[in-house]
Design a protein around this nucleic acid. Structure first.
Length: 486
RNA sequence: GGCCCCGUCGUCUAGCGGCCUAGGACUCUGGCUUCUCAAGCCAGCUACGCGGGUUCGAAUCCCGUCGGGGCUACCA
């Protein structure tokens, strides 16, 4: 296996928006492929047509792109092993199923869902391992004819021989399953469509996948997958390497779900999380570089990522830490990058319409908020005072410009600022400190709060003097004047 | 119930028999700084699930136990 070029696949079944757990898996798949200089293959497992929709498939593709997890083989980019949508590969699975039937590795099963359910019920009551009881394993021709005459539809079931399956999971070590607990499983539905167990195994072999890194929920399906490899005639040395990733769990209780914590990546995107922050945070869930490093770039991740460093125990998702990392990533952006990320949020919030002059002003203001926001969607609230045409003061802040001597402060500020020739934050600050703090003897906190509210409309704003500079002299004075009239 | 996986601060983790009176990060608390909010800096709180072994010595190895999770579909 060491000689073979690594090929890792991410193969989600888009029955909904990709969630945090899916993405973490995709990230590890991608990182491992990049780390080894191998191929990252993206495949859509849409064999369950009742649950997978085209929209979700499209959304999955978009999400991966947005995160920067570029694939080498898969939808849109193609590749030598396509198509990469299982729904377009149905004939392949049908051929293999037929081959298994011919080889007697598989057989037709005529049991109805009701009959199977009844069997399981019995087994539960009897406290024995539930599973298919092998009823149709060795049907005679006469029995088959009789079932057909009844009009029964058959599924194709794989025969599990007695014995055990042992494989080495790169994360968990050697794992053994006794076939007593791996009953004969269905490969093809009565309507002729393949099941996951058949499709994954066939595709992984045909597509030359060397490493299967996936969620640990699939751990116990591995013996079935291996059984299909055997039926396909694949040599044991050519089985892919398995590594089952631990779960990502929800904030409070167990499983990540819509109920607790938002799981859809689309939601994080709307909130203003950077893809790099999401990837950085997710990389730390179930993996660590081994030292104290926590702020990791995508580049570093590909350099450092190894399966050996992946944990076997599940991790809980912590929004607070994600926010902290997002804040770090925002602060690390250049102003142009920051602007590129932020402008869509400002236009969406209708703070700006996107004109050149607006964007020029945004770029001047961005340094003021870069270290005070954690998510991009906080930007509109902090910057809107620079763009509003009808300026108003927040209702809960009005008292700051009307009470406790605010009038005198504003009056004095208006007077002195009006006399100012050069309008820079340095000159504004010097003037205001001289008059309000030194001469009037006010506490900076008191004096500047009144001005802050008068000019920005809020008790929370970017730094005052810089804000006034960007606002301009006439607008600043107009707002002070307006506040004085309240 | 059965099979399988997992178990270090509240959370993510470092640790792979002595460097551990258990380190880092997030959160939280207090302080410094300060024009608000942040950022930054300093300090503090809190953990090896439990019980047995093995060993001169265990968070690290073994057994048991308890707890959590997954699977047990004509889902993936």
């Amino acid at each position: 296996m060491s000689a073979k070029k690594v090929k890792v696949r991410f193969a989600p079944s888009p029955t909904g928006d990709l969630h945090v757990g899916n993405i973490r898996t995709a990230l590890f798949d991608w990182a491992y492929a990049r780390h080894t200089g191998g191929t990252f293959l993206f495949r859509i497992e849409d064999t369950d047509t009742t649950r997978v929709t085209d929209e979700y498939i499209q959304a999955a593709i978009e999400t991966l792109k947005w995160l920067g997890l570029q694939w080498d083989e898969g939808p849109e980019v193609g590749g030598p092993n396509g198509p990469y949508l299982q729904s377009q590969r149905l004939h392949i699975y049908a051929e293999w199923a037929q081959k298994f039937l011919d080889q007697k590795d598989a057989y037709h099963c005529y049991c109805t869902p009701e009959e199977l359910e009844a069997v399981r019920e019995e087994q539960r009551k009897a406290n024995v391992a539930p599973g298919y009881n092998g009823h149709c394993r060795d049907l005679t021709d006469a029995q088959i004819a009789a079932y057909k005459a009844e009009g029964r539809e058959a599924v194709v079931r794989m025969r599990m021989p007695e014995g055990t399956t042992t494989f080495v999971d790169e994360i968990r070590g050697e794992v053994t399953f006794d076939h007593k607990f791996v009953p004969d499983f269905v490969l093809v539905r009565a309507d002729g469509s393949p099941l996951y167990t058949l499709a994954v195994a066939v595709d992984d072999v045909l597509m030359g996948v060397t490493h299967v890194l996936r969620g640990e929920d699939l751990l116990s399906s591995t013996p079935r997958q291996i059984r299909v490899y055997q039926a396909m005639g694949v040599a044991e040395a050519d089985y892919p390497v398995f590594a089952h990733l631990p779960f990502v769990m929800g904030q409070d209780n167990a499983k990540l779900s819509k109920r607790n914590g938002e799981v859809s990546i689309a939601w994080y995107r709307e909130q203003g999380y950077l893809p790099e922050a999401i990837c950085n945070y997710l990389a730390l869930l179930g993996w660590s570089p081994g030292d104290d490093r926590e702020n990791i770039t995508m580049q570093e991740l590909t350099e450092l990522f190894t399966v050996e460093k992946v944990h076997s125990s599940p991790a809980r998702f912590d929004m607070k830490k994600l926010e902290a990392i997002n804040g770090d990533k925002i602060r690390a952006l250049t102003i142009d990058e920051f602007a590129r990320w932020t402008i869509p949020f400002l236009t969406k919030a209708k703070v700006i319409s996107g004109t050149e002059s607006e964007i020029a002003l945004v770029k001047k203001a961005l340094p003021l908020i870069q270290e005070r926001i954690v998510k991009l969607d906080e930007a509109p609230q902090l910057l809107k005072f620079l763009f509003v045409t009808e300026f108003t003061i927040d209702a809960d802040a009005v008292s700051k410009v009307t009470e406790n001597g605010a009038k005198e402060i504003l009056h004095r500020a208006e007077q002195d600022l009006n006399a100012l020739d050069t309008w820079t934050h340095e000159s504004i600050e010097a003037t205001l400190r001289a008059s309000l703090i030194e001469e009037m003897g006010l506490k900076p906190r008191i004096a500047f709060t009144a001005l802050r509210v008068a000019t920005t409309g809020s008790t929370i704003s970017p730094p005052l003097f810089e804000s006034m500079e960007l606002l301009g002299k006439s607008e600043s004075l107009a707002r002070i004047s307006k506040a004085l009239s309240l």
